[in-house]
Amino acid sequence: MKIGIPRALLYYNYFPMWQTFFEELGHEVVTSSPTQKDIVNLGVSSCVDDACFPVKLFHGHVIDLTDKADVIFIPRLTSVSQGEFICPKFIGLPEMVKNSVKGLTPVLILDLNLHKSEHNLIKAYIAMAKQLGADSRKALRAFRRASLRQKEYEFKLKSGYTPLEIINSKQSNRIIKGGKVIGVIGHPYLIYDSHASMNIIEKIRERGYNVIVPENISDEQIEKQVSNLPKKLFWTYGKRLLGSSFFMLENKKVDGMIFVSSFACGIDSFIAELVQRFNSRKWNIPYTMITLDEHTGEAGFETRLEAFLDMMKWREKSGNYLSAHGASLYLY
């Protein structure tokens, strides 16, 4: 059977695991084509208007798969870590797709909820394997292999690669010695989708900067950073963004930070606010936020990026300049 995995949302987090799991069970895995204009259009026209851009993209990728695959894999990840959740739209994703896309190919749902206990991970995968007609022994073996692959993948991520470099195995290590570093913070499904994010990572690298992303920061560091918050942050991916950006800022790992968010992203609206406020209070590192959606024009995007990089340069040149008017002409 051909199982289709949409190249959107959590694809960037878990693709190696899912691919290995299905292949070990003896199925063929197909992915939707990389995001292009027509996939965006398909998604936007089928999904409800108020959803965020990445969810619309997911719809587009599902439609792209309808002819290519026998069954489309849609994960429903309620929670990927004990006591935490991820975005509500992810939890209702299968329902959203089923009700918005007409003439849908049968779907295969992975019901993963680790909110109560992390042991549910194996159970969820075995339950899914049973839907595909595999017995528990075979499922267990596939699961073990898959989680091994996933661990390997996550290990590589920590050493400074981006997910796409690993998945496509194009690991050119292009760290520029002595170059300035820019932290690009954003959800994986946004910053690694080269169409949606206008290829932001490549664009920054082309201008001679190094890029680090939240995936490069270890979980322990992230946990340490967010443990100072007055209340436990209950979004796993929100926590990753907040913790990794705090880590980068506090340890001066970056000379500038760009927060890439999609319009109407509920989680980012809070996370970006906190990062911005803490940054201006404690660290004062150049920071900007770029909001993307299906209407974003590339020219405007480039202008903002260039303006930010220019600002960083000016600051380096005249950052220590004290105005003759006093501490500062402006109130900061």
């Binding site: 409800v48 959803a51 509500p88 739209k89 209702g92 329902e95 959203m96």
Partner: peptide
């Protein structure tokens, strides 16, 4: 976020 899911249903 949650109501958007309901809206699509």
């Amino acid at each position: 976020m949650p109501e958007i899911v309901a809206e699509s249903i």
